[in-house]
């Protein structure tokens, strides 16, 4: 298992894919923050938790999406390029391959959300000060965003990997993740009782976002997202063992 973990870590660090994706994420976050800090009215940004909510909506949500995409990529890229064949020839116990990928995807997922939150925070500081508004989040807010975001990103990374291992094809996997996280979860906002249990909302809940349609208890939210990740992972291990590799 340690060997496989080393191999999976080396896979991530020996291509430039992840650096490119994190750079794209940071760019998107800056763009979103700049647009929002210019467009939102003063009273939304100056009062109460307005700025913190903005950091959650952009930093956690975009970071979480990329965490899932990077997790998915760790397996779909192997199917796309064919490296899955030498991978399972070297490690025919396929559950071990998925387990090692899950650990690495948790790490890259946490990293994605951290990059996203840090970028969002810095960009917000700069644009708010240009606009002449004071920064309102406290040190405690940042700790919650970063620590909660890392946990949420790790779990979303595992979920992304599981979806990728089940679907296998890269584009359909990405489309599925986009449709779920960007479309279905947004539609469900209208049904707060259901929305609070979807992965994206749980990710926000883990960072302590206080809003209708988001589970407001950090630990139950984390636990439920853990259950989703574990469930998805089990299904993906079973599917990977059962099916042929073309």
């Amino acid at each position: 298992m340690i060997r496989q973990l080393r191999s999976e870590t080396a896979k991530v660090t020996t291509t430039t894919t992840i650096v490119g994706l994190l750079a794209a994420l940071a760019g998107l976050v800056v763009l979103a923050i700049v647009v929002h800090t210019y467009a939102l009215p003063d009273e939304r940004l100056a009062a109460g938790d307005g700025q913190r909510e903005l950091l959650t909506d952009i930093g956690i949500s975009l970071g979480g999406l990329f965490a899932a995409l990077i997790g998915a990529l760790s397996i779909t890229a192997e199917f796309r390029t064919g490296t899955i064949r030498p991978t399972v020839l070297a490690t025919p116990r396929r559950a071990r391959v998925i387990a090692a990928k899950a650990l690495v995807s948790a790490g890259t997922g946490a990293l994605a959300v951290i990059v996203s939150v840090v970028t969002a925070s810095v960009a917000a500081q700069v644009t708010l000060s240009i606009r002449g508004l004071a920064s309102t989040p406290t040190a405690g807010d940042y700790v919650e965003l970063l620590a909660g975001g890392a946990i949420a990103g790790g779990l979303l990374g595992v979920i992304g990997l599981a979806v990728g291992a089940i679907i296998r094809a890269q584009v359909p996997t990405f489309v599925a993740l986009f449709i779920w996280l960007l479309f279905i979860e947004n539609v469900l906002v209208e049904l707060p009782d259901a929305h609070r249990f979807v992965p994206g909302a749980l990710a926000q809940g883990i960072t302590g976002l206080n809003r209708e349609g988001v589970l407001q208890d950090v630990w139950p939210a984390a636990l439920l997202l853990c259950v989703y990740a574990a469930g998805a992972l089990l299904v993906s291990v079973d599917a990977t063992r059962r099916r042929d590799i073309a």
Partner: peptide, 23 residues
């Protein structure tokens, strides 16, 4: 195997190394 199973973005040495690590 019959197809070339490589990540185009990885160097040849790293391709071999990744597999060496898992074995």
């Amino acid at each position: 195997l019959e197809f070339a199973d490589f990540h185009p973005n990885r160097t040849g040495r790293n391709h071999v190394r990744v597999l060496a690590l898992s074995s």
